[in-house]
């Protein structure tokens, strides 16, 4: 087992046997994360839009944010997946996982959007209102472009965190990367290879996402730097 050729053969064997399962796990992780992150961003944005200029709505939505930020994702998933049937909400593991991750993400993205909206000087809004620009246009042409540079770094951080948190979905039997690896461990008693591969995959994915985020940030804040 010490010869390099043996190691290559060993890994080739491992991939021949389990490659398809691992690829499916990777695909499920990416797919669920993409759906949950998009839904979470949308949800967080809606929460912030709804709670602006309306004290009662803001209080109610604040409770949502505090609850979902203050409890572990795993407990939320258990409540949704195991507790759901008690009030007639029986979801498949994949659906429960995606919905749970999206609700959890929404609370965090709402906070990011809140900081973004707070960063816009009130004078800009007053000026826009007095020019008779419609609220939707103000949001799209004045607020969002200005806060983009500010909210991208924390959003990218949050996306990376969510991608890592998606490993928790394996506990409610969603067949994503972690679940596939632990299943291989349990079925074939191979431990080292799937675990190390799993850790490497997550590390690679989060490094890639971090790098992409930095590129995006540079692009969005180009106007601030002096050199064009």
């Amino acid at each position: 087992m010490d010869m390099p050729a043996d190691i290559v053969i060993h890994w080739a064997d491992f991939f021949r046997q389990h490659g398809a399962d691992l690829a499916l796990g990777l695909w499920t992780t990416l797919h669920i994360c993409a759906v949950a992150v998009s839904a979470g961003i949308l949800l967080g944005f809606m929460v912030e839009i709804l709670s602006r200029n309306h004290i009662l709505r803001r209080r109610i939505l604040r409770v949502y944010i505090e609850i979902f930020r203050g409890t572990p994702l795993l407990v939320q998933l258990y409540l949704l997946y195991f507790g759901g049937p008690a009030f007639g909400l029986s979801l498949e593991a994949d659906t429960a996982g995606t919905v749970g991750l999206a609700l959890y993400a929404g609370a965090y993205f709402a906070e990011i959007f809140r900081a973004g909206f707070l960063s816009i000087p009130a004078g800009h809004l007053e000026a826009a209102h007095s020019l008779g620009i419609s609220p939707l246009r103000i949001l799209w042409r004045i607020e969002l472009p200005q806060m983009a540079g500010l909210i991208v770094p924390p959003s990218v951080n949050q996306i990376i965190t969510l991608m890592k948190d998606s490993a928790v979905l394996s506990i409610i039997t969603v067949t994503e990367m972690t679940k596939q690896s632990t299943r291989i461990m349990n079925e074939s008693f191979i431990i080292v290879e799937p675990l190390c591969l799993l850790a490497l995959s997550y590390w690679l994915l989060s490094s890639l996402a971090g790098w992409a985020g930095r590129c995006l940030e540079i692009r969005l804040t180009r106007h601030r730097s002096l050199k064009k």
Binding site: K164, L198, Y202, W203, S206, S207
Partner: peptide
Amino acid sequence: GIPILVVLL
């Protein structure tokens, strides 16, 4: 970069 669950495992 590695999820805490994976570090744990």
